[in-house]
C-alpha cells in the first residue's frame, strides 16, 4: 500500500512538477519565495495523498492543492510565512534575469509580470488555461461550471491583452 502511494506520488510529481512550480512562481515575489512555496505544496501533496479518492483526476487534485496553498499563503494571510520545510533532494533552476533574453524570453517575462498583476483567482485560472488544461478540468478545480470558466477566461484574456500592450 505504501509502495503504491509512493509510486503514485512520484509519477504524479514527475508529470506536474514544472507546472506546480510555475503556479507557485506567479504567487511569489522571487525565485526563492517560489521555491519555499513549492516545497510547502509538495509536503501537503504527500500528506494528503493517502486520502485521495479516485473520484477525480489526480492532476485536478494536484492543481486544487497547489492553488489552495498558494492562495492561502500569499493572498489571504497577513502573517509572514515561516518556512519550516527544506527538501534537499529537490533542485530548482534559477529562472530570474536571463543574461541576454531572446525575444521569446522577453515576451514570457512580460506575460509573467502581467499575470502577477491579475487578481489571485484570475491568476490561477489563466495559468491553467495557458498550461492547456481542458475547461472541464479547470471547472472541477475551482468548483465552477464550464460555461462560467469560459466566460472568466475570455474576460481575463482581454485584461491580459490590455496589460501586455501597455
Amino acid at each position: 500500500m505504501e509502495k503504491d502511494i509512493e509510486t503514485i506520488f512520484l509519477n504524479t510529481l514527475k508529470s506536474n512538477k514544472d507546472r506546480i512550480f510555475r503556479i507557485c512562481c506567479s504567487y511569489s515575489v522571487d525565485n526563492e519565495d517560489a521555491k519555499d512555496l513549492f516545497q510547502e505544496v509538495l509536503i501537503n501533496l504527500w500528506k494528503s495523498l493517502p486520502s485521495f479518492k479516485n473520484q477525480s483526476n489526480i492532476d485536478t487534485w494536484v492543481y486544487r492543492i497547489t492553488i489552495n496553498i498558494c492562495l492561502r499563503a500569499k493572498q489571504f494571510s497577513d502573517k509572514k510565512q515561516k518556512h519550516f520545510v527544506k527538501l534537499e533532494s529537490i533542485s530548482i533552476q534559477n529562472l530570474e534575469d536571463p543574461q541576454v533574453p531572446n525575444e521569446n524570453e522577453k515576451q514570457f517575462i512580460k506575460l509573467s509580470e502581467c499575470i502577477k498583476l491579475l487578481k489571485g483567482m484570475e491568476r490561477s485560472i489563466i495559468l491553467l488555461y495557458l498550461e492547456r488544461i481542458p475547461y472541464k478540468e479547470i471547472a472541477q478545480v475551482f468548483g465552477m461550471t464550464e460555461n462560467h470558466v469560459a466566460v472568466k477566461i475570455k474576460r481575463i484574456k482581454s485584461k491580459l491583452f490590455t496589460l501586455m500592450k501597455s
Binding site: K17, D18, I20, F21, R22, F38, I92, Q93, L130
Partner: peptide, 12 residues
C-alpha cells in the same frame, strides 16, 4: 507561454 515552458526547471 508554451514556447518557454518546455524546459525542465525542477529536478529531484
Amino acid at each position: 507561454w508554451q514556447k518557454y515552458t518546455k524546459a525542465e526547471v525542477v529536478n529531484f
